[in-house]
Amino acid sequence: MAIFVDENTKVIVQGLTGSQGRFHGLRNRDYGTKVVGGVTPGKGGSDVDGIPVFNTVEEAVVATGATASFIVVPPKFAPEAILEAAAAGVSFIVCITEFIPARDEAMFYNILRRNYPGTRLLGPNCPGIISPGRCNIGITSGDIALAGGPVGIVSRSGTLTYQALYELSQKGVGQTTCVGIGGDPVPGTNFIDCLAAFEADPETKAVLMIGEIGGSEEEKAADFIKSNMSKPVVSYIAGVTAPPGRKMGHAGAIISGSQGSAQAKMAALEEAGVTVAANPTEAGEVMVELVKSL
């Protein structure tokens, strides 16, 4: 078992004919992911290294039976691409696009929630998801992951996700699924969505959660862990000494209150019974020890 994607997940790539889409799409296929089609308006009928390209997501879904989409298009076109995928019945959308305006993110997030409650969006601005040995959608390098579980990883930061995967794999501890939720203001999938899925996944025995300063998602995750999780969670929060980010005027300060600092997040997680490590290496080491004792 894995969460959200596995060896049966059929994926289309929106933007497959672009240089980024081609690079990552083919890389994902080489990893063993079932990349069954691509979508680029106006390029239907062509192919990318044998992968058929369609004009619309709907055509691609009808022809291939895909249930997941990997969106690799520029920020200007990403909102439309996401909504097109949802309208065509795609149930799992991974969008790695960076620099999407917050207004657009808030809009498509709410449209998905209201009109397509069965669709899950991962990202935008995320590295994607990998269920090692089964499916890799996104830009994570497959060779730093190790199949077989028992650890589930969820992270807001791209490079720290890779770091975590690598540290565990080096020590022979495998992963069920590693989800990069991305650090944008309005992420489609949050910590709690992933924690709940890991809790329900029989193969996942422990969860590594990597957060960072800003927002209050880590605090909410701590509440969830406290009341809903039986599996052990190890965490690392980046940004203890980071310069305060752009202060969102007085309004921002009011919304976040005392929440948002690394200290507040770490305290909330510790209070929920989570083992909080001081740096990513320590988080890996703590998890390796924990897995030995399972």
Binding site: T159, T241, N279
Partner: peptide, 25 residues
């Protein structure tokens, strides 16, 4: 100098943990 905002923040943290202070992010 680091690649990725998360790793850069983490690097600042680790420099601080070993008694130093960062000149930049």
């Amino acid at each position: 100098i680091a690649n990725g905002a998360g790793l850069a923040m983490s690097t600042l943290d680790v420099v601080n943990q070993v008694g130093g202070s960062a000149a930049n992010f």
